[in-house]
Amino acid sequence: MKAQAIKWIKTWEFGLAVLLVLEILVLGAINPTFLNLENLLYSTSDFTHILLAALPLTLIIITAGIDISGVSIMGLASITLGLTWVAGVNIFIALFIALGVGILAGMFNGAFVASTDVNPLVITLGSLFMFAGIAMGLPGLLDALGFKAYGAAGFAAYMYEGISGLPHNFNQIAHGGIGWVPYPLLIVLIFAAFLGIILHKTRFGRYLYLIGVNADAARYSNVPVKSTLVTVYALSGLGAALAGVVLTSYFTSARSDLGKEALLTIITVVVLGGADIYGGKGTIVGTLLAGFFIGFLRQGLLAMGVTSDVVPVVVGGLLVVVVALKLFITTYNQRRLNQQALRISEERR
């Protein structure tokens, strides 16, 4: 029992949880209003989109892949939602169409990754551009294809300033809540629970680890590698689209460039959460905790009077430091383990 507890304390996730609590306490000491639970919960709405994208990305990184196109899918989903609505479709149907577009975009990435040996970074780099470009060009394209926007002078009118005036109940998605729990946080928690079950309790989740640790052995073990990859990238597309929808509601405006700046933060969250860029390691809880940590960190920095320009410097620095630190710990542990084994086998002799 005690050994179990020690093992648990030694986990990365536990360390993160401690770090998160410390962070909240420190920020609270600087500014007591921070400790107000309602404030704290509602302030998460500033960064739920990061988590919505980072959570499924964790699954991809476990397969030793990566998807950097999510930030473009956010904008694509947002503009799809807005344009569909302007075309006269009910906003909630438009919402599902936007999510569908996100899934399709993810499947495109997944199919490309699964059917070639090209580095996923390069593939999603290409699609990062392509999706962002499509999101930008979509209004004009719809006009050119002869679709009719309702009320306005064509879809192109929304190209730069976005689509605002969305229905009130849609805007409630980001601004409403149940009691003290805002809807976006609820969406994050439900999505995290869903992904957590998928990752840790289903054979699909197991396949992700198997592929990430040894894709060849997975193939030799008859793991359906291709369909698993397509599915996991589709999930990432879904997460990014969800983030796009929540952001749209948060800003009460659908824009094609929403979420553009989030890439660095998203990847930092996943890596800080314990996922290994070389595959095979990572948990949903870790990413969730890391997401809150970085989200609050950003707010704390801003509250302390640091300008928002400094934030990417801190986040970028954090990313590098965390990875370097993890590498160091691994090497150190390995060396210690070897010394231990040496002692034991020499004694036995």
């Binding site: 054979r203 197991r206 640790v213 060849d216 073990s221």
Partner: peptide
């Protein structure tokens, strides 16, 4: 090492890698 085993994972994960579809319906 290249094709048989998943070195970084619990041994059990290798042992059951080919029959995961038989272990439980939806959840493992």
């Amino acid at each position: 090492h290249a094709h048989g085993i998943f070195l970084e994972l619990p041994s059990l994960y290798t042992m059951t890698a080919t029959i995961l579809d038989r272990l439980g319906r939806f959840l493992l």
